[in-house]
């Protein structure tokens, strides 16, 4: 007859229901939700595209630069992209409000472009990616990062070698 005790306890304790969808609900700190892309931190290594299990990430070369596309309707929220990203250019937020009507199906996209620039030193066309940490022998200042960003990969190595030597 133990079940009667359980039932009475349940009745006395009252509902343990979360108020959602009529009220607020909780979100665990480690929840993996909507993906965020930060073009400024991206080194365009495209490791995320390689490891994405759902095939949700895609890089396209466009006249403006290298475009990053992530379709949330194909994303498994496994977090592999964020795990393999060397610069935290891609992160997972805890936003899980992803249910959407069919009309917004192809709007569930995270988008970003790394712009194409002319190298400040040689004038060659290059992507303004974030500079790799190996280019500096000390933690770089934001100004140094922005300067490095304006060079093409070859000029970056040249500039970095000169500075390390001096």
């Amino acid at each position: 007859m133990g079940f009667l005790g359980v039932l009475i306890r349940n009745l006395v304790a009252g509902p343990s229901t979360d108020p959602f969808p009529f009220g607020e609900t909780f979100t665990p700190a480690t929840l993996r939700g909507r993906v965020e892309y930060h073009p400024a931190d991206c080194v365009a290594c495209r490791a995320c595209e390689q490891v994405c299990v759902g095939g949700a990430i895609r890089f396209d070369k466009t006249p403006e630069g290298l475009r990053f596309l992530l379709w949330h309707d194909s994303c498994t929220f496994c977090g592999l992209c964020a795990f393999y990203c060397p610069t935290e250019g891609i992160t997972l937020t805890d936003d899980w409000h992803l249910a959407h009507p069919q009309s917004r199906k192809f709007a569930m996209v995270e988008e970003g472009t790394i712009p194409t620039i002319r190298c400040a030193a040689c004038g060659a066309q290059a992507l303004a990616t974030a500079p790799a940490a190996a280019l500096f022998d000390h933690p770089p200042t934001p100004a140094e990062v922005e300067e490095m960003r304006s060079y093409c990969p070859r000029c970056r190595r040249k500039v970095a070698a000169e500075r390390k030597a001096s």
């Binding site: 979360d18 959602f20 969808p21 609900t25 929840l31 759902g54 949330h72 309707d73 994303c75 498994t76 929220f77 496994c78 899980w96 409000h97 992803l98 249910a99 959407h100 009507p101 069919q102 199906k105 569930m108």
Partner: peptide, 21 residues
């Protein structure tokens, strides 16, 4: 299809949200 609830799997609150939609 009228409503999509993405996730692999979606969390129960997200499903509730989709049902409400």
């Amino acid at each position: 299809i009228d409503v999509n609830v993405p996730g692999c799997p979606p969390r129960p609150q997200a499903i509730l949200e989709g049902v409400a939609m």
